[in-house]
């Protein structure tokens, strides 16, 4: 059974390309266009094996989403990767403090992304 990855990004093209990359590598994908929607999905019972989130998004950004997700018992140990254009070290440190598993910078090659996903996924299995 394929593992489910939740993608949180406000860019439809990012969601589309990430979904395609992950699905052709054997993963199932759910997506949300901002942190608030993603949090609602998690509160609604979605149990992804991994979450990949952007940082700068409307409504609710990635950092606030990570904080909210970590507050949910079901997501306390779910790996969360950020995938962002953000280069501010302060935000990177903030994401680490909030419980992110890793910090990925766009553009990131598909094979690199899949490699990182496979590296962090066993912890969630």
């Amino acid at each position: 059974m394929s593992k489910t990855i939740l993608i949180v990004d406000d860019s439809p093209t990012m969601i589309m390309s990430l979904r395609s990359t992950l699905e052709m590598n054997g993963f199932a994908v759910e997506s949300a266009s901002d942190g608030a929607r993603a949090l609602a999905m998690l509160e609604g019972g979605l149990r992804p094996h991994l979450i990949i989130t952007d940082i700068n998004m409307p409504n609710m950004g990635g950092l606030e989403f990570i904080r909210g997700a970590r507050a949910l018992p079901s997501c306390r140990f779910t790996p969360i990767l950020t995938l962002t254009t953000e280069s501010d070290p302060a935000k990177r440190e903030e994401s680490r403090r909030l419980g992110a598993t890793g910090w990925l910078v766009k553009p990131l090659s598909g094979p690199d992304l899949v490699g990182v996903v496979r590296q962090v996924l066993p912890a969630a299995a």
């Binding site: 990004d9 093209t13 390309s17 254009t85 553009p107 090659s109 094979p111 690199d112």
Partner: peptide, 20 residues
């Protein structure tokens, strides 16, 4: 093929960088 296509899809992330 999947590796190459994944690479292509990753390179398309330039669009998100450019969009921002």
């Amino acid at each position: 093929l999947v590796h190459s296509l994944s690479d292509i899809l990753g390179r398309l992330q330039f669009e998100d960088v450019m969009r921002q």
